[in-house]
Amino acid sequence: MSLLLDHVTLTYPDGDGRLTALDAVSLDVPAGSLAAVVGPSGSGKSSLLAVAATLVTPDSGRVVVAGTETSSLGPAQKAELRRETVGIVFQQPNLLPSLTALEQLQVMAHLSGRTSRTARERAGELLDAVGLAVQAHRRPHQLSGGQRQRVNIARALMNEPSVLLVDEPTSALDHERGAAVMELLAGLTAERGTATVLVTHDRTHLDRADRVVTVRDGRITEEARV
């Protein structure tokens, strides 16, 4: 299951006119592949991610997430698509303060109406996979920045998404932790066969991506295989 953006254009109101955030952008990310999207601030990277996550509806063009054409979906159907098919790793971990690390993952299953023991076991396995089995019952304020980011990643994988959207995962981490997170994302993409889009301005760890897409002024200006 892949992610396809086909001639997507997105504009925002800007004073009396409109600002073009994405200008006929096309991107096809197959299953099991990690595409890194790089570019300066304001280039349209996060707009691309927001469109792929169905959080914003583009002015024109097609967005197909795991085989589902999203333009005709209503808000509830888009929420369901995000819940069942898309995993989002936020730039800031965005963990809920009242939940333990384990519960941050369990809530994903709960949103989908799954409250079984299996969901708890899977949450435990995922935390184990990101090296946080010991910290499973700690709340966000009891975790380090790197640990919170790993919970963020594990949460995105909880519902076995076909598409993984990752926003600046290393921006708050030092080099060593950033490298570990990139290693983890590349490994998970290959192992679980997700179509992963990674938005970053940090070019340090791009060797872990299958290809690098450069965005500037809302357009894809360069695409290179690693």
Partner: peptide, 16 residues
């Protein structure tokens, strides 16, 4: 509201 925004982004329905 920030937590609500996160839950919505993760796929929580408004009804939920």
């Amino acid at each position: 509201s920030a937590d609500v925004a996160v839950l919505k982004a993760l796929g929580a329905s408004t009804r939920y």
